[in-house]
């Protein structure tokens, strides 16, 4: 894999950073990341992963853009109301960087589709908004041995960690063996 001249110019500030360099930029280009959720977390996550030059991004979400999403789900414009969030986020990312390959999955993640989907990617980023999905993602990431970068928000609190039980770390269930009594989470 190589970078074309447009990419070399686009990523030049990366290429001159010893922490990234040509080797690192190629790693980013080879990387395949699956994001679950194209809402509040997925918007900035996808926009930045696209901008820095991740080669392949998968986006899973089944929701459509609603007027009440616009104040925080910044990838979606007012003109996107009613469109699937995965399409709106894809277009926003591609408008900034058309070198990225984006696979959209306009569907709800469930136990029928999760394993096959996870197998195609290197890292899973969970920006989902409910406990059912969070446990599903955790278990599927464990079974497919994929590192899981997990983020969640509630009211004015946020939590971020990496679950990678394959390398000795905890999984989501190590922290939360049971879902909270009232599983209420806003998107």
């Amino acid at each position: 894999m190589t970078l074309n001249n447009e990419e070399i110019s686009r990523y030049s500030r990366h290429l001159t950073l010893p922490e990234v360099g040509m080797g690192g930029q190629l790693k980013l280009k080879e990387a395949k990341i699956l994001m679950v959720g194209a809402g509040g977390l997925g918007s900035p996550l996808g926009m930045y992963l696209g901008a820095v030059g991740i080669g392949k991004l998968g986006i899973v979400d089944f929701d459509v853009v609603d007027h009440t999403n616009l104040h925080r789900q910044i990838a979606h414009a007012a003109s996107d109301e009613g469109r699937p969030k995965v399409h709106s986020l894809r277009d926003t990312i591609l408008a900034g960087n058309s070198n990225i390959e984006i696979d959209v999955h306009n569907t709800r993640l469930d136990r029928e589709n999760v394993m096959e989907l996870f197998e195609q990617y290197d890292v899973i980023a969970d920006g989902s908004d409910n406990f059912e999905t969070r446990y599903l993602i955790n278990d599927a990431a464990y079974f497919t041995k994929k590192p899981l970068v997990s983020a969640s928000i509630f009211r004015f609190h946020g939590q971020i960690t990496i679950f990678d039980p394959d390398s000795g770390g905890p999984c989501y269930r190590c922290l939360y063996s049971e879902p909270p009594p009232a599983a209420l989470v806003p998107s």
Binding site: G40, L41, V149, A151, I153
Partner: peptide
């Protein structure tokens, strides 16, 4: 704005 901060750390 909260999701922005958290999503960027995740990225």
């Amino acid at each position: 704005m909260l999701p922005g901060v958290v999503g960027l750390i995740q990225a």
